[in-house]
Design a protein around this nucleic acid. Structure first.
Length: 428
RNA sequence: GGAGCGGUGGCAGAGUGGCCGAAUGCGCCGGUCUUGAAAACCGGAGAUCGAAAGAUCCGGGGGUUCAAAUCCCUCCCGCUCCGCCA
C-alpha cells in the first residue's frame, strides 16, 4: 500500500511512477479524489464530536452541581446532534473503506533503478556465470521427468493419482534429495538468519499483509470451512511475524528464514511449463526474509541476492541474474532480481529465486513499524525477501546436470553429508 | 466439542458509567549527588490522523447512553477443568 500523503503531495509523481508499471492514471486520480472527500467529511465529523464531547462534560458538571434543569436542557441539545453525527459517521466510514480498497489494489511504485520494459522479454540480463553450453554431453540432455521415471525417484503419475496433475511424488533417493537441498540451504544461511517453522495455514489478515489478497485470491488455496489460506510462500507468515508490532531500530535488520511447503493454484498458467517439476501446485522452499530500516534495505537486497546465488554455486551449477523490468514487476515489488539456473535436460533457464525489495508496501498493510534510536515516534519498516532455495527446479537442475553416461547421478559433494554416505543415485 | 474465567501503557497491575489517555510498582530516558557506578532524590516519556484546533485508541467489531476501560451482543485470543487425540 502506498502512502496517501504521497498522493496529496505529489500526485503527478505517483502517476508517473505507476505509469511505468502500466497503471492507468485515472485510478490514481480516483484515489486522490476519494481521499480529499473523506478528509472533508472526517473534519466535519470531528468538529461535531468535539461539540458533543464538550456538552457531555458540561452535563456531568451540571449534574454534580445538582443543577438538573441545566443538565436536562444540555442533554436535549446533545441528543439533537445525534442524527447529524450518525450521517457524517457512516459517510466518513464509507469513504475511508473505499479509499482503502483502492489503495490496497494500487501497486508499489517501482524503483527508479528498475529498468523500463513491457514484459519479461525486457528484463535485463545482469550477468551469467559458470555457463558453457559446450560442456554438456548427450547423457545430460535428458529431461528430469524421464530421469525420475528411469531411476524411480520421481513419480508424477502417482502424484496425479493422489492429488491431481502438477503434484509431485518424490520417492527414495529423490525424496532424500529434495530434503537434502532444503537442509543444505538452511545450514548455509543459519549463520545470520534465524530459522523459523511457521504455520502453513494462515488468516486472511496475514495474506493481506504480504500482498496476495485481495487482488490475487485466485492464486491461493483457501480452506473455506475454517477461513484459512494455504501459504504460497513462507513470505506470507514471515512478514506477519512482526505485524502490528513496533520493533527497536537496534534489532534491525531482523533476519528470518523458514523452510515451508508452498501452495499455488497456478490458475493463470494452465498448459505452460507443466512438464515434470517446472510448475507444481505444492513444493518446498527455504525462504530468507528481512525487516530493515529504509537505509539498510538496499544493502540487504544485495545480501539476499548473494545468498540466493550462494545456493546455486554451492551445488556447482551455472546461474544468471536478471534485473526485472517495470512491466514484469509484481504489484508489491519495488525492485526485484531473479536468479536462474540452467537445466541441460530441458535446455531451459529455471527461475530458482526471486529477490525482492518491497519498501514499506507490506509494512503499511500490516502496520509493521520500528522506533528510531534517534528522534521520536515510529517509522514503517522495509521488508525484503528471496528464496534461498526452491526445491523442484533445483532438484531438476541437479538431476539433469549430474547425470552420468551410465544413467546414474553423481551427487555434488556438498550434498554427501545428507545422503548417509551415498555419493550417487542409481536405479533401484 | 462442553463448562468456567480472563484480555488495560515496554512489563506487572489498579480502575465497575462522567473529574480516566488511564493510579501504583518495575523497567526506560534526563538531571542532582559521586573519582566512577550503585542507592537515594528530582524531572521526563504512548500511538494514529490533522497545518492547527481537535478527533480516535483500554483485544476486534457492533449496541445502550447526553456520556463507556466500566453495561449488553458478537468475534478473536489466552488460561483452567472435562472430552478427544499425534
Amino acid at each position: 500500500m502506498i502512502d496517501v500523503r504521497r498522493l496529496r503531495n505529489d500526485l503527478e509523481g505517483v502517476r508517473a511512477a505507476l505509469a511505468r508499471k502500466g497503471v492507468d492514471g485515472s485510478v490514481v486520480d480516483r484515489a486522490a479524489a476519494v481521499d480529499a472527500e473523506a478528509r472533508q467529511v472526517v473534519d466535519q465529523r470531528d468538529d461535531l464530536r468535539a461539540r458533543k464531547n464538550l456538552l457531555s462534560k458540561q452535563i456531568g458538571e451540571a449534574f454534580r452541581a445538582r443543577d438538573t434543569a441545566t443538565a436536562e436542557s444540555l442533554r436535549a441539545e446533545s441528543k439533537d446532534l445525534e442524527g447529524q453525527e450518525a450521517d457524517l459517521e457512516t459517510g466518513a466510514a464509507a469513504l475511508q473503506a473505499e479509499l482503502r480498497e483502492i489503495l490496497l489494489a494500487l501497486p508499489n511504485p517501482p524503483s527508479p533503478d528498475a529498468p523500463d520494459g513491457a514484459s519479461e522479454a525486457d528484463n535485463v540480463l545482469v550477468r551469467t556465470e559458470h555457463f558453457d553450453p559446450a560442456r554438456y554431453g548427450a547423457h545430460q540432455r535428458v529431461p528430469h521427468w524421464d530421469i525420475g521415471t528411469e531411476l524411480g525417484i520421481l513419480d508424477m503419475e502417482r502424484g496425479a493419482k493422489i492429488s491431481g496433475s502438477m503434484f509431485a511424488l518424490f520417492r527414495g533417493a529423490g525424496a532424500t534429495l529434495q530434503r537434502a537441498l532444503c537442509q543444505m540451504a538452511i545450514d548455509n544461511n543459519v549463520d545470520a538468519y534465524e530459522e523459523m517453522r511457521p504455520p502453513s495455514l494462515v488468516r486472511t489478515e496475514t495474506v493481506i499483509t504480504s500482498g496476495q489478497l485481495p487482488k490475487f485470491a485466485d492464486e491461493q488455496y483457501h480452506l473455506e470451512r475454517d477461513d484459512l489460506w494455504a501459504i504460497a510462500t513462507a513470505e506470507d507468515p514471515l512478514t506477519s511475524v512482526a505485524r502490528d508490532e513496533v520493533l527497536e531500530e537496534a534489532n534491525l535488520p531482523m533476519r528470518l528464514m523458514a523452510y515451508t511447503p508452498c501452495f499455488r493454484r497456478e490458475a493463470g498458467a494452465a498448459g505452460r511449463d507443466t512438464r515434470g517439476l517446472l510448475r507444481v501446485h505444492e513444493f518446498d522452499k527455504v525462504e530468507l526474509m528481512a525487516y530493515a530500516t529504509p537505509e539498510q534495505a538496499p544493502a540487504l537486497l544485495d545480501e539476499i541476492l548473494q545468498r540466493a546465488i550462494g545456493s546455486v554455486v554451492a551445488l556447482g551449477l551455472p546461474y544468471r541474474v536478471l534485473d526485472i523490468c517495470t512491466g514484469d514487476l509484481g504489484q508489491k515489488h519495488h525492485r526485484q532480481f531473479d536468479v536462474e539456473t540452467y537445466a541441460p535436460g530441458c535446455d531451459m533457464w529455471l527461475e530458482v529465486s526471486s529477490v525482492t525489495w518491497f519498501t514499506d508496501y507490506q509494512a503499511r498493510r500490516g502496520n509493521i513499524r520500528y522506533r528510531p534510536s534517534e528522534g521520536r515516534g515510529t517509522e514503517l519498516v522495509h521488508t525484503l525477501n528471496g528464496s534461498a532455495l526452491a526445491v523442484p527446479r533445483m532438484w531438476a537442475a541437479v538431476v539433469e546436470t549430474y547425470r552420468q553416461p551410465d544413467g546414474s547421478i553423481a551427487l555434488p559433494e556438498v550434498l554427501h553429508p545428507y545422503f548417509r554416505g551415498a555419493t550417487t543415485i542409481s536405479g533401484r
